[in-house]
Design a protein around this nucleic acid. Structure first.
Lengths: 233, 233
DNA sequence: GTCAAGGAAATTGTCGACAGTCGACAGAAA
DNA sequence: TTTCTGTCGACTGTCGACAATTTCCTTGAC
């Protein structure tokens, strides 16, 4: 089952396509705020900067488009996606629908290995809440918890849509700078979800995820509305 | 405010790009069964046949990938998506989750113009159930009804994911040949949904959509399982 | 007859170039 | 001054060509 037990750890060589690498660079630049919302993403400029041709850049941009990080206007090109607080609210409502369905399935089908994975991820969340870690690492750990939820549901489709909205969620949190005053709080808010799942009580689990996402929804949209009003002034 | 009140109505000319046209041709070929599941989609062959270069074909294929009509394997290219009955079951479960959420929102926010649109679409469904119309037209009318539901929800995200799964749903129905013995039945199964929406009774509306999708789910997956066992023999 | 290795053919990955389109700005007309 | 029109630069849309990779067929050994 294990691949390559013999010899020192031969890990699959970086056979990641050029497109993927470009996409990762771009999405990192966007999520970290290096590229501001609304900014134009010129194919030729990016291509020149990364030392590749326009073709892979274009494909990477199209990739980011499906995840909602950039938008595309015919004959005008790609732009870094900007949010309105309304769109963020819609995003979180949608996330709630998806994750509620996932929770229901998890309860009905049993947790299995997911239980241990979730527990480990909560540890990880605590670990990256230290002062040495940056916001991006914490948010990624947060998303990973929810990704594990979706992955455990047994229906790959939930994971697929989650991957799409996860990037946007990540961006939304990065945009407002921080979610909670105390970084440890981010880890703690996930504990009730796992507890509820363990209890096997569907209603309780649904309530837990609703509370969790609802809290984030409130924090993000409110913070964002402030940013919006600052911008118009 | 109005653009071009004078002279006869100048509406925006059809500025559809080459990529879109290629994508439409391909997806039609797939949905009508002209391209069988599992078939390789060679970029150069398609490009030659359509009289364009590989670039737009490639982009069109990537577009179809996001809608799930084709799959992509690095360095191997694009293939017409094949389904397992399990995947179809997952698809319909997911549709149920999405549309249930949509129904709930519709009830809470009020139908508005959606009511008239849905009613008109049911008429359309009856109209295309005649002997002169083909399966594809009927299925497209069916999808349009559900598209209207999602569009009326007020959260654009539902419409976006629906567009993705609609194509797959369409394909699934086309694959099994027909859903109901009597074409008129397809139209009739949509009536209870509209009725329930009009009543404003959320539980009843959720029940209606659950029944509707559940019925389709059973028919499609059962039919498909038969096809599967035929294939293995 | 089966299997492995090697090489040829076909396909995808990437590139640079040219044509088409857009937005901005300058200049002409009112 | 204001509005419209023509021009220009920059960008995207599409293309054909080459490089890298995979696939398939041939060939040979066992």
């Amino acid at each position: 089952m294990d691949q390559q037990n013999d010899s020192d750890g031969f890990r699959p060589i970086d056979r990641e396509g050029l497109v993927q690498r470009v996409a990762r660079r771009l999405s990192k630049a966007i999520v970290t705020g290096q590229l501001a919302p609304g900014a134009r993403l010129s194919e030729s400029v990016v291509a020149r900067q990364l030392g590749v041709s326009r073709a892979p850049v274009r494909e990477a941009a199209r990739l980011l488009e499906t995840t909602g990080l950039v938008t595309y206007e015919p004959n005008r090109g790609f732009f870094v996606r900007g949010f309105t607080s309304r769109e963020l609210d819609d995003l979180y409502e949608f996330r709630l629908v998806i994750e509620t369905a996932v929770i229901r399935r998890l309860i009905r089908n049993g947790l299995g290995e997911t239980e241990a994975r979730l527990a480990a991820q909560i540890d990880e969340l605590h670990r990256v809440a230290g002062p040495d870690f940056d916001m991006l690492t914490q948010v990624e750990a947060d998303m990973q918890f929810h990704r594990l939820l979706c992955a455990g549901s047994g229906n790959p489709r939930y994971l697929a849509v989650f991957e799409q909205i996860a990037v946007e969620t990540e961006l939304s949190i990065m945009l407002i700078g921080q979610l909670y005053d105390d970084p440890q709080r981010l880890a703690e808010t996930h504990v009730p979800i796992l507890d509820a799942l363990r209890s096997g009580d569907e209603a309780r689990a649904v309530e837990a995820i609703s509370y969790h996402i609802g809290e984030a929804r409130t924090l993000v949209t409110e913070q964002f509305r402030k940013l919006e009003s600052d911008r118009t002034e």
